[in-house]
Amino acid sequence: MSTDPNERALTMPTRPHREPCPDGMDPGTCAAELHRLRSENEDLTKKLDGAQRSVAELNSLFECSVARSNALVLDSEISSLLLEGIFNASHDAIWIVDRDFKIVRVNRRLASLVGQERQELIGRRCHDVITSPRCGTADCALKRLIDGKDRTPILTDVEVSFGGEGTMSCILSASLSYDPCGEVLGIVEAFTDITARKQAESALQRANEELARLSTTDGLTGLANRRRFDEVLQTEWLKLRREKKYLSLVMADVDFFKRYNDTYGHQPGDLCLSSVAKAIRSQVKRPADLAARYGGEEFAAILPSTDPEGARHVAELIRGEVERLNLPHAASSAADHVTISVGVASLVPRDGVPPGELIRRADEALYRAKKEGRNRTVLDVGDVGG
């Protein structure tokens, strides 16, 4: 054994460190309390570690959420910009109005039609900006949409005045807009300019009407042609058969017209026929009456609801008007001027009797007028009842 005190101190066994016990506490109790406190400390340390990990995880989730939110906001802004671009690039005039018909959004096209800046239009009522026949009235289609009387989207042709300057033909399309809960926010309304189409349709309609007129009009005299004569005669025959009223027919022929052509030539002959046609038209005045060129130098007048004496009176007026033209006709055996011979027939149409019967009788009366010396009117004296 070493005698060196320092050496002995280095080689002596180390005693376990003991926490001092509070005064008066039993060592066993003190040890148990220390053990309990160490266990609680370890539990708190573990919970603190867990809380720190949770905070880290929450921070990570929050950062991801913020990133996603920023991405969604960016996407929303991009979408909004794209929609705004489409909204303003549209050739249609578009606006959105709220439930009080106040403008909340308007595109460039509509603003340009009105002649104002877009911001100047916001908040104004739509019917104060444009005018259309039913704008601002109880019959307004937009009002019916808002009121729920008819929520079918509107698609119709309208005539619209933007800003009170001129009128534009448009296709109006309008439908309700809703919030996420299904409540009505207002109306999206678009106006498609169809003025050019309408003008083309009108031009086509006029052309068709002119073609229809030409197809039923004699090119030389301007009177109805034979085709139109046949149509009207058939229509009036059926109508007056139902009504049991007279239908009268006047047939006139220019006396010695072939001699006129041979003497004066075909161009003066055409002028003669045109003048006679004008004289006939001047005496066939009622809207339902029809003056027609029946063929060659022969003319006819259909007189609905006219009895025999009335028809004879009109025929005499026509004959006298032609005489008053005082067109020279040196080759005529009837007079030294152009004259006509006239045959008149009147019937009350009935079942089993065709319209041709009226033509036959008027033609026979015309034949007798020629045979009796021309330049006269002869009335058919057959059975006027048919």
Rank of each mutant, 00 (worst) to 15 (best):
G148N: 05
A279G: 11
T45L: 12
L44H: 03
S175V: 02
S341C: 11
Y178S: 13
H35N: 13
S215E: 10
L34K: 08
A365L: 11
H313K: 12
A330R: 01
I86Q: 05
Q119D: 14
L113R: 09
S333N: 12
A9G: 14
R228W: 06
D23C: 09
R197A: 07
I359K: 01
G310A: 14
T29P: 08
R151E: 14
G50D: 04
L247R: 00
R15E: 15
T131G: 08
I78H: 02
E236P: 01
N88E: 10
P5Q: 05
E309L: 14
P355H: 01
R350K: 10
L240Q: 07
D43H: 11
R213M: 11
R108Y: 05
R118I: 12
E165C: 14
D380K: 06
R324N: 06
F229W: 05
D150N: 15
D253K: 05
M1L: 10
D255G: 10
N70F: 03
A200D: 14
R374N: 11
L61W: 02
E209H: 08
V104I: 13
D218E: 06
D100N: 13
R281Q: 15
L74F: 10
A203G: 15
R241W: 00
G123M: 11
S132C: 15
H91K: 08
D128Q: 14
N375T: 08
D75W: 02
S76F: 07
G148V: 03
I318E: 05
S76Y: 05
S54E: 06
A196W: 04
R134Q: 13
G265W: 00
E117W: 07
L113F: 10
N261T: 01
A111K: 09
G186L: 09
Y367T: 11
I130F: 07
T131N: 11
A71P: 01
T235D: 04
N326W: 02
D43Q: 11
R118N: 14
L176M: 10
L176D: 08
G296H: 01
R324C: 03
V322Y: 04
A32P: 09
S341Y: 08
S274V: 06
R361Q: 08
E357D: 01
V232L: 04
Q199W: 04
A203S: 15
E236T: 03
G222M: 04
E231P: 01
F257R: 00
A89G: 00
Q234K: 06
W95N: 13
N6S: 10
A292K: 03
L233G: 01
E165F: 12
Q267V: 13
R361P: 02
R324E: 03
E309N: 12
L366D: 07
P304N: 06
L211M: 05
V378K: 12
G385V: 09
V97C: 15
Y178H: 15
G24H: 03
Q267T: 09
S161F: 06
T131Y: 08
L82Y: 04
A56K: 03
D4Q: 02
R197E: 03
L81R: 05
A365M: 11
I86H: 07
P354W: 00
L176T: 06
K198T: 10
L81G: 10
E297G: 06
A89P: 00
V284G: 02
E33A: 15
Q119Y: 09
L72T: 13
A31G: 14
A369P: 12
A9E: 15
E243Y: 11
I146D: 04
G166H: 04
H35S: 15
L233K: 00
I340Y: 08
T156W: 03
R350C: 00
I103V: 07
E209P: 04
E19G: 12
E316G: 14
